[in-house]
């Protein structure tokens, strides 16, 4: 199996789409439905990359990102924000919190895979 990716999104259909896209390129996918759930998953395993939505219940993507960067074990894990948010101010928030890239939904599979391969080469 290939490299492992944590996919965080409150939408089941988006998680399914991302899972299918990534598995077609031999990535191993773990799903989380919000930031809190993702932090629990990170307690059990290390991932090569995290794909994270911004607007989610309980814990949003930016808060999760800040929490992640405070964890020594995971602070160097690259994070891509995958969201419908397209405003420059939101993107700046993501950048300040430590995101490596920002992709505006709906994404194109080949572009997503290309961005991932650039970050976990």
């Amino acid at each position: 199996m290939g490299k492992s990716i944590l996919v965080i999104d409150d939408s089941l259909s988006v998680r399914n789409v991302v899972r299918n896209t990534l598995e077609s390129s031999d990535y191993e996918v773990t799903e989380a439905f919000d930031g809190m759930d993702a932090l629990e998953k990170l307690e059990q395993k290390r991932f090569n990359l995290v794909l994270c939505d911004v607007n989610m219940p309980r814990m949003d993507g930016i808060t999760f990102l800040k929490e992640l960067k405070n964890k020594p074990k995971h602070k160097f894990t690259p994070v891509i924000m995958l969201t419908t948010e397209s405003q420059a101010s939101k993107m700046q928030e993501g950048k300040a919190a430590g995101a490596k890239a920002w992709i505006v939904k709906p994404f194109k599979p080949d572009q997503l895979l290309s961005a991932i391969s650039k970050l976990i080469r």
Partner: peptide, 13 residues
């Protein structure tokens, strides 16, 4: 108006 990215855009930081 604020600068916005288009759907499908990828920005690397």
């Amino acid at each position: 108006q604020e600068d916005e990215s288009e759907a499908g855009d990828i920005t690397f930081f």
